[in-house]
């Protein structure tokens, strides 16, 4: 297949390009116009064609899709204010979908996020899966949740209206080189101190190489259901404490942890919410960790499953979470594409 991979130069994108090449696909890798560096091994690689465009503008998008069989849409804005994220995530997707329609490309894999789910209203230790309710009051959540929800709805509406084959993947926490920290652990106060909110909550981790394989399997999916939404979580979901300790073990000097029990954190957030409501009519701006709906989304102890994605795609995470951490810290970039990459199975 010839796949257009958006966000190809990003953290997940580079691994997805590598996984696609390893699976024998041709890749049109979309980089941002001002991207300074090109990932190692992409230049002159016979299976990789690099193109540059910014999806926030419609200019030049039609040509991107010429001769493409499917799109893997990873590009999104993870930082910035609401309008920067709306531009980088939602408007970019809107433009891409319009271009797909014009280019008659009807196969799409899009990356969403666990952030779209409702957390405040669900019980602790309940199981979160694809049937779990989505955020009920997104405007109380952060910008990322709001924009990812809009993006996902946009994609699913378009796919349904035009009967596209479309898989929306919702990864938990994707980790890997330079992306080992997760907000689900709490907060970093400088390099030396970690504020760990809770200890026992399982982390819905997905090591980036595992996740990339799931993305490519989704692109190849030929199952009877033309539209699917699947969570992406590795087999093991270590606790906050276990994962945090593993990270600390590799750090020099080792950061000091200030543990704040989940119950205390919930109480503090509840108090902040009440104060805001009583004295400021809910208009005050408080840190995310003191907003109950955001705190619960980050740190609530829940259980996770990856049975649906394994059943649908035949995906099997290749690396354990400890191996994922080891590979992330090892010398050499695991996303580098060897010049003469052996194909596995098309």
């Amino acid at each position: 297949m010839k796949l257009l991979v958006t966000g190809a130069g990003g953290f997940l994108g580079r691994h997805v390009v590598k996984a696609a090449v390893q699976r024998g696909h041709q890749v049109r890798a979309l980089l941002r116009p001002a991207a300074k560096s090109v990932p190692l091994g992409w230049q002159e690689h016979p299976q990789v064609e690099m193109v540059r465009a910014d999806l926030r503008s419609r200019r030049g998008l039609d040509e991107l899709l010429t001769g493409v069989d499917g799109v893997v849409h990873l590009a999104a804005a993870k930082a910035g204010d609401l309008y920067e994220q709306l531009g980088g995530t939602v408007l970019a997707t809107e433009n891409l979908l319009d271009a797909m329609l014009l280019g008659k490309v009807d196969r799409l894999v899009a990356i969403s996020s666990f952030s779209v789910y409702e957390y405040l209203q669900r019980h602790a230790w309940s199981r979160l899966d694809e049937s779990s309710p989505l955020a009920r009051d997104p405007f109380c959540r952060d910008e990322y949740c709001q924009t990812k929800l809009v993006q996902e709805q946009l994609i699913l509406d378009q796919a349904t209206n035009h009967d596209w084959r479309c898989l929306v993947l919702r990864p938990g926490v994707i980790y890997g080189r330079d992306n080992l920290w997760t907000a689900r652990l709490g907060m970093q106060a400088g390099e030396q101190w970690w504020l760990r909110t809770g200890a026992f909550a399982p982390l819905p981790l997905s090591y980036v190489e595992n996740c990339a394989e799931a993305v490519i399997l989704a692109a190849e999916h030929e199952g009877p259901k033309r539209r699917l939404v699947l969570n992406v979580v590795d087999n093991e979901t270590p606790s906050q404490r276990a994962y945090g300790n593993e990270l600390r073990r590799h750090m020099h000097p080792r950061p000091r942890v200030i543990p704040i029990p989940w119950t205390l954190m919930r109480l503090l957030a509840r108090l902040a919410w009440l104060t805001n409501r009583i004295f400021f009519k809910g208009t005050a701006k408080v840190p995310g960790l003191l907003v109950p709906s955001r705190l619960h989304a980050r740190c609530k102890p829940l259980r996770y499953t990856n049975r649906p994605i394994k059943a649908a795609l035949g995906w099997q995470p290749r690396y354990t979470w400890q191996e994922g951490v080891e590979r992330s810290l090892a010398a050499g970039d695991t996303a580098t594409l060897p010049a003469d990459q052996e194909k596995t199975a098309p």
């Binding site: 709306l86 939602v90 946009l154």
Partner: peptide
């Protein structure tokens, strides 16, 4: 010009 942005703002 963007339908999705117009709808999002209207809902918000």
């Amino acid at each position: 010009l963007s339908p999705v942005l117009a709808r999002f703002t209207a809902e918000r």
